[in-house]
Each structure stands twice: as structure tokens, then as C-alpha cells.
Amino acid sequence: MPGKPRVTIARIAEEAGVSAPTVSKVINGRSEVSPETRRRVERLLREHGYIRRATGTDGPAGLIDLIFAELESPWAMELIRGAEKAAAEAEASIVISVLHTHEGPGRDWLDRLAARRTDGVIIVGSRLSAQRYDRLNSRSIPFVVVDPEGEPAPGVASVGATNWQGGLTATRHLLELGHRRIGMIGGPPDVLCSRARIDGYRAALETAGVEVDPALILHGDFLVGSGHDHGHTLLSLPDRPTAIFAGSDLQAFGVFEVARQRGLRVPDDLSVVGFDDLPLSRSAWPPLTTVRQPLEEMAFLATRMALGISRGESPEPRRVELSTDLVVRESSAPPAAQYSGVSS
């Protein structure tokens, strides 16, 4: 803050009753500090709002860590592309890590992160608990969350997309084509973006005076397999839907496959809409109508925000939602006047 003296390692050391090298070891994630001393120093670092020395603005920014919970989807490449572009502008390098868990970085990983003095961390698709948030702050590691799975804690910088509006727009498109039996395949029920897309779907139906049928709403994991499995369930209903809104493009591709297996033509017998607008959606057959989520732009902005925080800047606003847009292609059309249930 302007006019506020910057807290020093020496002051933290004096208040904690330890040496300055010990404080430095805590800041840098070194292991040779007792747990009690580490807790005492971390508490003082938080209380004083200690900010580690920022990278000089005249030289390269250093390292940006891009952290994924999983790396199983092509959408990760779009995020990597955006982060790399922002890092290149700042003459920084990208380090990609996969945690194989949605619970956020663990203590050991955070220690290693602090030891290599990263200039910023982009956390993609993880649940960041208050405890992990405190651990990142106590090590003075600037971070931004992209597409958070849960509600970000107050003060946490995050970048997402207008998922509710995207769900509303996709469903409204199908309603305007004349569909009334519209299936919905979402992601995990406890993931923020999935809930928002389903809520947008519900809102569009309710606004149009169409009853929401719980049997038409299923939860998956955003991957092809869940699109296939839940598409099979929906298309096996006695009164099957004439359209399916999938919570991701990958799930939509799974619906394509099960429709083909059942002898249904897209969009003649079944309209399908996805979410993401991955490059694959343009080359699918038929090309996929989808909601464009600006993944590259999200990662670009998050990286810029993290670099700004590392320089002592405070991003405003701290929570950003970029707009989604409906991209109409050939997988959606008015429903046929009649259809016959085709079984596998």
C-alpha cells in the first residue's frame, strides 16, 4: 500500500524470536525448520502481509507454474496456449504440473514450488481450501485460479466464464428450433461451472413454460465416456429427447457416437449442442453447435494477473468472468415431426 513501510525479513525474525536465515528458509519452503517455528513465522508473514521480492521489471519475469488437476482433455491445450502467450510477452517460462487430484496443491508440492521461487501460479480446475489458500499466501506465492471447481474464497483472484449464460443460450437455441424434450448431460454435480450450466438450462426451460423433467438431467465427468453412457440412457427413454445439450464438447462427441450406434442421424433425428468450442468441434461430422468458452483468453488473463500480483499490483476486479457465445453449426436443427424409437 502507498505510504505503508514494507515489512522486512529482519522484522519478522525479531518478532518470531528466530534468525533471519530461518525466516528465509520458511519463505523459500526449506525443510530444515521445526513445524512449530514454521507455523509461528507463517502466522507473522500473513499478519504483516509480507510480499516476497518481486522480479525486476527490467528483466525476464522468470517462471510461471501452470497447475492442472488432470490433463486428460484437449481443452487443457487451449489453456496452455493462452498461458504461454502471456508468459512469452513477459519473457517468462511456463512449467506445467499435474496433481492428479482436485484438492489443490499439497504441502510437499508447495515447498518445492517456493524453493524454486516461481513468479506466479495458475491453478486450473481445483478446489482450493482455506487452508491451502493460507499456505500459498504464507509462502508469498502469487496465484490465480482458472475455472474454480468451488466458490473461491474472498480475496482469491480467479478467472472463469459466464457458464450460466452459456447454458441459458444453448437451451434457448434448441427451444427456438422447436424442441421441447431436451436432455441435459452435465459435469459433476459439485463443480461450480457444471451447476451453473445446468441452472442456465433450467432457467431457459422455465422461462419458455416447459416443465423441467429430472429424468432428462444426468451428471457425468465432461469426458467422452460419460457423454456416450448418459446419451445411451437418455435415448433409451420411452419418450426420448429430440435434442441433447452436453456440458462439454467431449460429452457431445460421446452422444454423436451413441446416436450413430442406434441408427439415429444428427441433426435429422437428434440435435446436439456442446460447450467449449474445441478445435475438434469444427471438424466433427456434423460440425458441432456449441457454446464457445474463451479458454485461451482465460489463461492469458490469469497469467497476466499472476504476474501483476508478483509485482505488488492488486488486480481489479479480482473475480473475472469472460463472455461465452453460441456458435451455431450443423448439429442442431428443428425436430422431425415424428420419429420412431430406434433401439440398439
Rank of each mutant, 00 (worst) to 15 (best):
R262V: 06
E91H: 14
L136K: 08
G59Q: 15
S248L: 04
D213Q: 07
V18E: 11
V320R: 08
H179R: 05
E176N: 09
D277L: 00
V255D: 06
A10G: 10
A76H: 13
A203D: 15
T169W: 00
P279L: 05
P60E: 14
M184N: 08
V224P: 06
A20C: 04
V7M: 08
D119E: 15
L63W: 12
I122V: 13
A92W: 07
G187M: 05
A336I: 06
R181M: 00
G225N: 13
R38E: 13
G225T: 13
T162S: 11
P334L: 05
G56S: 15
P317L: 03
G166S: 07
V266E: 02
L177I: 09
R116T: 04
I27W: 02
S340G: 13
Q293Y: 03
I198R: 12
G125A: 14
G274T: 00
V95S: 13
A243I: 00
P188G: 02
G263Q: 10
P241G: 02
V191H: 15
W75P: 13
S310I: 06
P35E: 12
F275G: 01
G167K: 07
A153G: 09
M1W: 11
D108M: 08
R282A: 12
V124D: 05
S283F: 14
W164N: 08
W75K: 10
P154R: 06
D269Y: 00
R40S: 02
R197W: 08
E149C: 11
R38K: 15
S340A: 15
S281R: 02
E176G: 07
N137F: 01
G312W: 01
Q251L: 05
L128A: 03
P188N: 04
R53E: 15
M184G: 07
R318S: 10
V159L: 00
R265V: 11
S97L: 05
S24E: 07
V320C: 05
A306Y: 08
Q261L: 10
P238Q: 00
L79D: 11
R292Q: 14
P2G: 02
S24Q: 11
E211W: 05
G49E: 11
H48Y: 12
L63Y: 14
G104K: 04
T55Y: 14
W285C: 09
A114L: 03
E89S: 10
G178I: 05
T22W: 05
L136A: 02
A115L: 02
A246F: 07
S138G: 14
R139I: 00
H219F: 12
A336S: 11
Q165V: 03
M77V: 12
V320L: 06
S283W: 13
R132Q: 14
P334D: 01
G187R: 04
T324Y: 03
A86C: 06
A299W: 03
Q293K: 13
G59A: 14
V41W: 14
E15S: 07
R53L: 12
P74S: 00
T57I: 14
T207S: 13
R40V: 01
R112G: 13
A284G: 04
Y201N: 00
E149Y: 12
A69S: 15
V18Y: 04
G160A: 11
R195S: 04
I96R: 02
L71Q: 09
S93L: 11
L270N: 09
Q131I: 10
G341K: 15
E176Y: 04
E42N: 06
V121F: 01
T55E: 15
R52K: 15
K85W: 04
Q251G: 04
